[in-house]
Computed example of a mutant assay.
Amino acid sequence: MDFSIHVAKVLQIGGLEIWITESMVNSWIIAGILILLALFVRSKMRDPEKVPTGIQNVVELLVDTLDNFSESTMGKHGRKFSSFYAGLFIYILLSNLSGLFLGPNWNPEFPLPVNFMRPPTADVAVTFALALITFFMTQGFGIKSKGVFKWMKDMTEPMVLLTPLNIIGELANPVSLSFRLFGNILGGTIIMGLYYNLPWPALVGIPVVLHGYFDIFAGVLQSFIFVMLSMTFVSSAMD
């Protein structure tokens, strides 16, 4: 069994090696699916004056729900962030759920083609990149909302001696965000990989339950937690 991140292709540009990893390729696949889905939805909603039916009703319900959720979580600032966090949530969710898609030769002894499309979120480089977005949004919108001097003064609260701890706390946020998502998804990937390498009679029926927990339940939960914490960090910085 091999749980490492594989390199799909190495590009030589100006004497530098640029590694295209399977996490990047899988991320592009998921991004492509989301773009095609967005274009499909847009094609069904060309006439804003038309009485909404079918898919437009579903989309409007989802948008309204996400707007209300963002506003309830982030307060008066929430609605302007809802489209960004909705896109982030859907991307992370599909990345987490991609472990459900199987390919050939995971276990040569098993008579059916079973192999994971490795979730991009099982790569700490991906989750840390997402967490850095939240970190820079937190600092950027904090400065925009309060001004540089008030933002710097907040780092010294409640006393100047705690300034180093406040700075460490800010730097720890993207680390905790990234490792929480990465650890949960990678853990599920490893457990499922170990299970699929059992003799094939032990695999009958049980993978459905395990996929239901490690891929669907944990995938949805971790997507929600990541976005909820990201929204909380940004809104707190702006208050």
Rank of each mutant, 00 (worst) to 15 (best):
V204D: 07
S145K: 06
G212Q: 04
S27N: 07
Y91C: 09
F128W: 10
F3M: 13
A172V: 08
E71H: 00
V58I: 15
V51K: 14
G87F: 07
L11F: 15
A218F: 11
A131C: 07
R180Y: 12
H6N: 11
V209K: 02
L16I: 13
P52M: 04
F226V: 07
N96E: 12
I5G: 04
P207T: 13
E17A: 15
S235T: 09
L221D: 10
N105D: 14
E157P: 00
D2Y: 11
D123M: 11
S95K: 04
A122M: 06
E49A: 11
V160N: 02
M74K: 03
M159A: 07
S178D: 03
V124D: 07
S176A: 09
M228T: 09
N26R: 06
G147S: 01
V114Q: 08
I13F: 11
F149H: 08
T163E: 01
I33L: 14
I90E: 10
L16Y: 14
T232M: 00
L171H: 09
D215G: 06
V160S: 04
I13W: 08
G219E: 14
S230N: 02
L198I: 12
P207E: 12
R46Q: 15
S145W: 05
S70R: 01
G147E: 05
I35K: 04
F149D: 13
L39K: 06
M24S: 08
V148G: 00
F40P: 01
S95T: 14
K80R: 15
V175H: 04
K144A: 14
R118H: 06
L229A: 05
G183V: 05
Y196R: 04
W200D: 06
G193P: 06
V160C: 00
L16G: 02
L132G: 01
Y195F: 15
K9M: 13
P174K: 05
V148M: 10
W19F: 13
M228G: 01
I225C: 00
T65F: 15
P207C: 03
D154R: 01
T53H: 06
S95M: 14
N26K: 02
M159W: 01
H6V: 05
A31F: 15
V41C: 05
G142K: 01
S83V: 13
D2S: 13
V41W: 03
T134W: 07
N105A: 09
V204R: 03
P113H: 04
V25N: 06
F217R: 01
I90D: 08
L34G: 00
F40A: 09
P108V: 06
F69I: 15
W200M: 01
T156A: 13
K80H: 11
N26L: 05
V114T: 10
M228E: 07
A237H: 00
P48S: 09
S82L: 02
M74Q: 06
